[in-house]
Each structure stands twice: as structure tokens, then as C-alpha cells.
Amino acid sequence: MAGHSNNLCYILLFCASLVSADDKLNPLEQTKTVPVTQGNINSNAVALFERLFQLKRSEQKDAVQRIAEVKSIEKQRKLLELVITKIMEVLTHSRIKLESSGYLPESDFPQDESLRDALSSMIENTAFMGDLVLFLPDATKAFLKNNEWNTIFKWSLSICQQSVFLSTATKKMLHLVAQELNLVERESNYFNPYAEANRKKPDPLPENVEKKKVRKKISKGPSLSGSRLKNEL
């Protein structure tokens, strides 16, 4: 029991590290052999963001898998609540920063460091929440019944989808999230195998097999004969 609790604590700490804004983007790290100009500072910042973002995405997918492997429904729910609460705190903080600055999603990557950090944190946590929606849809969507959380996630999802520097693969994933949440019309071939309603259930026995079982001749009287017992099994 203690080992299981320690594992949950590890998962929580691991997830908490993924939603924090600790990774600082410094575009000058990439300018050692390139003359520094306004243009290449921004392009280097985008390149660094993309590199860090891909690393973060790999860690996030690992975290989602760890959460999905928690056997206890109640412990999984509590873990999700803690993780999603932290995600929403980061998204809210990022929204305040971005909106107060007048940042537009169609804009280039920000040159201001604090604004860049807010945007990076928003994108990372939107993607993390998107993974939870897709791979743990029933459990995660229950938390989005919270109107405040639902509003902030819709906002961040919309900003990310309008971004001019996110990859096609990331935008495709976010489009799947929007479909899962019915924020856009689902495409005819949309199917989420992780949704409870779509999980394969055992096929019912054919009616004639059930009748045969009912009509099977029942032997009169008990018997401990080894061959008889084997036949009945």
C-alpha cells in the first residue's frame, strides 16, 4: 500500500513539473555563430521554443500514460483533479498576461521574455490538457463541467489553433480535442477508442447457444467420479 501511495506521489510531482513555467526561453543561446538582429532573435526564439516544446510533449504523454495506469478510479480522479487544477491556474495566469499585453494569436513569437514565457506555458498546458481529454475523455470532461475551467480551456484552445508557428501535427491534435469536446462538428470518420462508450464489450452469446445450455440434460443424483466430473467441466 505504501509503495502504491509513493507511486501516486511521484506521478503528481512529475505532472506538477510539467505544468510549471520553469523553462525559460533565451533566444541568444542560439546566436553564437549568427550576428544578432531583431529578425534572427525572433526566429531563434521560435526554434528554441519548438525544441523545448517537443521535449515537453514527450514528458506529457508519459505522464498521461502513468495516470491512465492508475487502477483505482477514485485515486485516478483525485490525481486528475490536482493536475487539472494546476493546469487551469497556469492557463489563467497566462491569459491575464497575454490579454493585458494586447497579444494577438496571429502575431509573431513575442520578443518580450515574460510575454514569451506566458505564451509558452499556455501552449504547453493546453496540449497537456488536450492529451487528457483525448486519452481519458470521460474522466477529464467531468472536470470541464466547471464553467470557469471550461471557459479558460476553450480560450486557450482557440488561441493555439490560430497560432502561426505551431506545427501541423500539433494543430491536428488540437482539432481532435475540439471534436471530442463538440466545440466543432465531428468529422464523419472521427472515433475515439478511449471513450467509455466506444470500448469493445464482449459479444453476447447467440440465442441458440443459450437455449442449448438451458436444455442440457441434468444428471440425477450427485457423483464424485473423476471421469464424470471431467465431462461436466
Rank of each mutant, 00 (worst) to 15 (best):
G3M: 13
G3S: 11
H4T: 07
I11F: 07
F14M: 14
S17Y: 04
S20N: 15
N26P: 05
P27N: 02
E29V: 05
Q30E: 08
K32M: 08
K32H: 10
P35D: 11
P35C: 03
P35A: 10
T37H: 04
Q38M: 03
F49W: 02
F49G: 00
E50I: 11
Q54I: 02
R66P: 01
A68D: 06
K71V: 06
S72I: 09
I73A: 13
R77Y: 12
R77G: 02
R77H: 12
L82W: 09
R95E: 07
I96M: 12
S100G: 05
S101C: 00
G102F: 02
E113A: 12
S120N: 12
S120R: 15
L136K: 00
K145Y: 04
W149T: 00
W149K: 10
W149Y: 15
N150C: 09
W155N: 10
V164M: 01
L166Y: 05
L166K: 12
L174G: 00
H175A: 06
H175Y: 05
L181Q: 05
V184N: 03
V184C: 04
E185T: 13
E187Y: 01
S188C: 00
F191P: 02
R199S: 01
R199M: 08
K201Y: 02
P202E: 06
L205E: 15
N208D: 14
K212F: 03
R215K: 14
I218H: 12
I218Q: 15
P222W: 03
L229I: 11
K230V: 08
